[in-house]
Structure formats: C-alpha cells, structure tokens
Simulated assay, not measured.
Amino acid sequence: MPADETKKQRVIADLTRRIRAGEWRPGTRIPSRAQLAAEYGVSEQTIRDATRELVTAGLLESVRRGGLYVRLGGR
C-alpha cells in the first residue's frame, strides 16, 4: 500500500473513532482541512480524500462553502 494511502486510512480510522466516541456530536462542524492536516501531520489533500470517504460512508456531511459536519451519532 502506498504511503499516502496508509496515511489516509490512518486519518479515516481516527476520525471515525472520534465521531463514534462522541467527541463531535451530530451537527457539529469538524475542524478545517488545514487544522486537521496540521494535527495529523499530513497534506490537506490527504484530509480531503479521507473526509470524502467519510461523506460517502454517511459519517460526515459536506456543506458547500460551509465545511464538514458530523452526520450520524457515534454509538
């Protein structure tokens, strides 16, 4: 698996864990891509790819020019 894919999977796993643990409640806006990239030590593109997968999975909702919001409850 390429390094970028591994980083993306790590971010997906941790964001999923945080959502399911209730760190961010449904309707909560999550930190910006820039903030998450800095927190995880990855590129904004990696965050973009990871969050896109979480939108597809139904855990996040993307609001055009409004950010990303937690869609489902964590438990």
Rank of each mutant, 00 (worst) to 15 (best):
P2D: 08
A3K: 12
A3Y: 05
A3T: 08
A3H: 10
A3I: 13
E5A: 15
T6V: 13
K8G: 00
Q9E: 13
R10D: 09
A13E: 13
D14E: 10
D14T: 05
L15E: 10
T16D: 14
T16C: 08
T16E: 15
R18W: 00
R18L: 10
R18C: 07
I19T: 04
I19E: 04
R20D: 14
R20Y: 09
R20Q: 14
A21D: 15
G22S: 14
E23I: 13
E23D: 15
W24N: 01
R25C: 10
P26K: 10
P26Y: 08
G27V: 06
R29H: 05
I30Y: 03
I30Q: 03
S32R: 10
Q35K: 15
A37F: 01
A38M: 03
E39P: 05
Y40D: 04
G41Q: 07
S43H: 01
S43I: 02
Q45E: 15
Q45K: 15
T46Y: 02
T46E: 00
I47F: 06
I47M: 00
I47Y: 01
A50D: 00
R52V: 05
T56E: 09
T56M: 01
A57V: 00
A57F: 04
G58I: 04
L59S: 05
E61L: 09
S62V: 00
R64Q: 13
G67C: 03
Y69K: 06
Y69D: 03
Y69V: 13
R71A: 14
L72G: 10
L72R: 14
L72T: 13
G73H: 09
G73N: 11
R75W: 14
